Simulated scan of single mutants.
Amino acid sequence: MKKTLTIVFCLFVCSLAQAQQGSITSLSISPTNPTISDTIFVYCDMQFGYSSCDLDNSAYTIVGNTIPASSHHCLGMLTAVCNITDTFKINPLSSGVYNFILTLTSGFGGAPGPPCTPGIVPDDYDTVQFEVIDPTIIETINISKLDFTFYPNPNEGLLHYNISQDLFLSNINEMVIFSSNGQEVLSNLIRDQKGTIPLDLESGIYFVRMRMNNMELTSMKKLFLIR
């Protein structure tokens, strides 16, 4: 008899756990493209199969670039469809890519009745990934090495350059030369697709790249200068 009651109780608990299961229907963030100065709001849309689904408690922590979060809801006793949205407010973050991971649980009870029961098993999981941008960092883009060429190399002081049409039309306006220790030693305005630049520099190894109005191109080429 005792064994039978145990089995019946287990079946009841399992059916209750299955019946109370809710689901996360969507996760979204605002603003869509947050910066390091923005407060971020994560909106979590959920659906339950009961007449009420009040929020009991929610929390989140920040562990590196992972943001684990939890949300627990108290359900009513009547069968119905209950939709609700939880909102998480996250203070400004440093730049990087983050993963917000939400675990949803639910129980029965809550005000004005008895305390809400804990979730037996998690109802659902979901995650949303977003990137926080630092607008003070100059944007960089990579270009193919074929986008600009110069000659001769090694060079004796007069550098000829040739810029591809696509690159020239993208508002390239300056050629920049750096020393081997990364110091900018020469910059020259680019007005034509082809041209010649005098190099008033000492013999050594240099690096050349192109610069646009609001960004620098990260493709660099080595230049040997021999006097």
Rank of each mutant, 00 (worst) to 15 (best):
T39M: 08
Q20L: 05
H72Q: 15
L225V: 14
G22E: 03
D192M: 11
V176K: 03
P154A: 07
T66V: 05
H73I: 07
F100S: 14
V8M: 15
A19G: 02
E184T: 03
K222M: 08
I24S: 04
V42Q: 04
S164D: 02
T25P: 07
I36L: 06
A111R: 10
G195Y: 09
I67F: 02
E202M: 15
G204Y: 02
I190T: 08
P198T: 13
I90P: 03
S30M: 10
I137V: 10
S58F: 07
P31V: 00
F178W: 15
K221Q: 06
C116F: 01
C53N: 12
S144G: 12
G157D: 12
I172E: 00
I143M: 04
A69T: 11
M1N: 13
I138F: 06
L78V: 05
P198N: 08
Q193P: 02
I141V: 06
E174K: 04
C10T: 13
M215Y: 12
D45V: 12
L5I: 14
H72W: 00
I7P: 01
K3A: 03
S219L: 00
E216W: 10
Q165M: 00
T32L: 03
Y50N: 10
G119L: 06
E139D: 09
L199M: 11
S144Q: 05
L78H: 05
F150G: 09
G119S: 11
D200S: 14
F224V: 15
G204N: 10
K2M: 02
L223R: 13
F108E: 12
R211H: 03
I24T: 06
I137L: 11
Y50T: 14
Q183I: 06
D86E: 11
A111N: 02
T149L: 01
S26G: 01
T105G: 15
S58W: 11
N181F: 02
M215C: 05
G182R: 10
P115Q: 08
L199C: 15
L78P: 00
I84M: 08
S95F: 10
F207W: 09
M215W: 05
Y125T: 10
G22P: 03
I177L: 13
Q129I: 01
G22F: 06
I205F: 15
V128C: 13
L189A: 15
